[in-house]
């Protein structure tokens, strides 16, 4: 007997298990949340956020930490172990964690609050908006599993977190690329007087930007690599992907520039518009996020308003609840892998 999905085409229920040949997945089999982002042959750094926060706390008494039952999964445990009396385990209760962070900020502290991006953006939104952002309090919300960085499925994939938070006044939104940038950004957002949402790459995080002599500056987009045919405008770990794609495309005589935009809001419109206005390049935004409401649309809108009219394409996640599966498989399936980016760019030229 066949069961038809009750509500039509959106059901993912299959009549039977059919293994697929994972393209470029290297035999990945796990959908576990601890699946590595991109470790093949690359240098990594363990828990860069946690170690940076611990360093910061050594210098600043006002730094306190909170987590909603996810300290070990957001690298907050490094800080918590070093400063147990400055860490507040708030339990599985994101609303009170965010509200309490606001209360601590009211009393002069600089709280770092961690959870998963889905829970901060979807569950705690009203609390972040009214208790923190409306009053411009210096709370730093740092969230693991941004975009598609877990194969657990939509409950844990924060594919629209940037869209949600870009609309919140006063909030600075940061999407770092790698371990070095995560550590630098942790110090930079602590120095910023207002509220911040930062996407977190946790655990063993690749070290990519160091060899380019890059240093994070809050609110600044920076050219990592120049090129004459394509201008990638990217954020988060997608900068690491487009740097690899640029190498790949260079072999096919396609010369790609990479403009890294780790601060999604406020957007560095001046630099982005100036780079896009340099003649003759296809502008390709690349983000670990739905194509709706994230970096791509932010850049498109900024260029339109600046009067910069250029060919424009987006690499990003589709407007769908995504599948469960192994991360490399999913990244390829949804167009975020180096292979997929390279193929897309060639098809657009």
């Amino acid at each position: 007997m066949t069961h038809e999905p009750p509500f039509g085409a959106h059901s993912r229920r299959k009549s039977k298990y059919t293994p697929r040949v994972a393209p470029g997945a290297g035999g990945a089999r796990t959908s576990a949340m601890i699946a590595s982002l991109d470790a093949e042959g690359r240098e990594t750094v363990a828990a860069p956020f946690g170690h940076a926060l611990r360093e910061l706390a050594a210098a600043r008494d006002d730094i306190v930490g909170l987590s909603a039952d996810l300290s070990k999964y957001t690298d907050m445990h490094v800080f918590a172990n070093a400063y147990p009396d400055r860490f507040y385990q708030m339990g599985m209760a994101e609303q009170v964690m965010i509200s309490a962070a606001a209360g601590l900020a009211r009393e002069g502290f600089t709280p770092f609050a961690t959870t998963y991006a889905v829970f901060a953006s979807r569950r705690a939104y009203d609390f972040i908006a009214m208790a923190i952002a409306e009053e411009n309090l210096p709370v730093k919300i740092v969230c693991a599993l941004p975009g598609l960085t877990t194969g657990y499925g939509p409950s844990h994939q924060a594919t629209e977190d940037l869209a949600i938070f870009r609309g919140m006044p006063n909030l600075t939104v940061v999407d770092p690329c790698d371990a070095v940038e995560t550590a630098q950004a942790t110090h930079a957002i602590a120095a910023h007087p207002g509220p911040v949402y930062m996407r977190l790459l946790r655990g063993k995080v690749p070290d990519v930007l160091g060899r380019y002599g890059y240093k994070f500056k809050l609110g600044k987009a920076q050219t990592i690599r120049d090129g004459r045919d394509v201008l990638f405008v990217s954020s988060g770990f997608m900068t690491m992907r487009v740097l690899d794609a640029a190498e790949r495309l260079a072999a096919d005589d396609v010369d790609c520039a990479v403009l890294h935009v780790p601060t999604i809001k406020p957007l560095d419109v001046e630099t982005i518009a100036a780079e896009a206005a340099k003649s003759g390049r296809l502008v390709v935004t690349a983000e670990n996020h739905t194509v709706i409401g994230g970096l791509g649309e932010a850049v498109a809108g900024a260029l339109m308003r600046a009067g910069v009219h250029v060919p424009f394409r987006q690499v990003g996640l589709p407007d769908e609840f995504l599948d469960a599966g192994a991360l490399p498989t999913l990244h390829h399936q949804y167009g975020l892998s180096v292979d997929a980016i390279s193929a897309s760019v060639k098809s657009w030229l």
């Binding site: 509200s99 962070a101 209360g103 601590l104 208790a131």
Partner: peptide, 22 residues
Amino acid sequence: ITGGSLGHGLGIAVGAALGLKR
């Protein structure tokens, strides 16, 4: 505090009470 969105005040109060103790 800014009230109005109900269910916020007591949570903020928890954080501020923690801050006062600190």
